[in-house]
């Protein structure tokens, strides 16, 4: 993977899928195939990013995404540093800009950021020379999740173009939904989002998709269901009356699949699952579920992204380091 050939990738940052072309998405996925192969080797490690330092700046709790990025960086021989800050301390204490400047003063190459506020990674990227990767910003985007999702779809079904993918759950607050919508529509899939009307955001159909509150409509004919995590506890003013009713109307259960789904439907979930809520036990562990493949693929996809961004930094146009000066 380290051979020096021209790779058509110029971007310094990965802030969202919206800004990517279909070709760029394909490029990431193609590279991820190679990295997945490496992950299967007895010694799953390459020296690609040796000497580079990557910071995980997580201003919101995360286990899966952070671990996946950390592992991806380590498999590429980069040094990693984890900085976890509760977003609330940002609201009171050191500003994000100061935090960014301080981290950068430690001479680092890339910052992977998770933040509760939409637009925070873009803000960060304007204030640092390091490359910034968005690991989820508020309800805006979660590009690496979408990339590993389409990677998994392509791996399981051989293509993305022409497929019908339905995303089910809290669409309004989901960065996973938005990034998936961009990725899937750019790659030629047709997308339906489904959830209680209270959780379908305004004018979402203008993104070139269908929106419905009928689970049947979303499941019938779908090749893939991407089921989102539902958080009832955190809703200050509830968007639906009870988990019980949510499960009744929108839960993906065996009988729903039996009645409406294609035989070879693929079930995805970005995790962590609320078993018995958005996914029933038997569906989560059932033959259609590819949830653990998604996790495995996440590392490969993130390796591909780190590799490509590192590659872009190595090119002439980008200075990889400027003594902390802006």
């Amino acid at each position: 993977m380290t051979k020096k050939k021209q790779i058509p990738w110029e971007k310094k940052n990965l802030l969202g899928i919206e800004e990517l072309s279909e070709e760029e998405i394909q490029l990431i996925l193609d590279h991820a195939v190679g990295f997945k192969e490496i992950l299967g080797r007895p010694i799953p490690k390459v020296p690609t990013l040796r000497g580079k330092t990557i910071v995980n700046l997580f201003c919101e709790p995360s286990t899966r995404t952070r671990s996946s990025f950390e592992l991806a960086a380590k498999r590429l021989s980069a040094d990693t540093l984890n900085v976890a800050t509760a977003s609330s301390s940002f609201a009171k204490g050191e500003s994000l800009k100061d935090t960014a400047k301080n981290i950068e003063a430690m001479k680092i190459d890339m910052i992977i950021m998770r933040h509760a506020c939409a637009g925070a990674p873009l803000f960060l990227s304007k204030n640092v020379d390091a490359s910034v990767i968005n690991a989820g910003d508020g309800s805006h985007e979660h590009p690496t999740q979408a990339l590993l999702d389409v990677f998994t779809v392509r791996e399981k079904l051989g293509k993305v173009s022409g497929l019908k993918v339905s995303i089910i759950g809290d669409i309004a607050h989901s960065r996973v939904a938005r990034s998936n919508i961009w990725a899937l529509t750019k790659m030629g899939a047709s997308v339906t989002v489904c959830g209680p009307k209270t959780l379908l955001p305004a004018e979402i159909e203008k993104m070139g998709i269908k929106a419905t509150s009928s689970l049947r409509e979303a499941v019938e004919g779908a090749d893939v269901l991407n089921v989102l995590r539902i958080q009832f506890e955190r809703q200050k003013k509830a968007f639906f009356p009870s988990l019980r009713e949510y499960v009744r109307e929108f839960g993906i259960k065996a009988d729903v699949l039996e009645k409406y789904a294609k035989k070879d439907i693929v079930i995805m979930h970005p995790g962590p699952i609320n078993r018995g809520v958005e996914l029933s036990q038997e569906v989560a562990d059932g033959p259609y579920s590819v949830i653990l493949d998604q996790v495995t693929n996440g590392v490969a996809v993130r390796m591909a992204i780190l590799f490509l961004l590192g590659h872009a930094r190595g090119k002439g146009g980008l200075k990889s380091r400027k003594n902390g000066k802006k």
């Binding site: 637009g119 985007e141 305004a202 004018e203 203008k206």
Partner: peptide, 20 residues
């Protein structure tokens, strides 16, 4: 509620809290 920008296509795309 927790809105910070006009509710519509752009609040949906940007993931910013909508103000109807």
């Amino acid at each position: 509620d927790e809105g910070v920008m006009n509710e519509g296509y752009w609040s949906t795309v940007l993931g910013l809290g909508p103000i109807p």
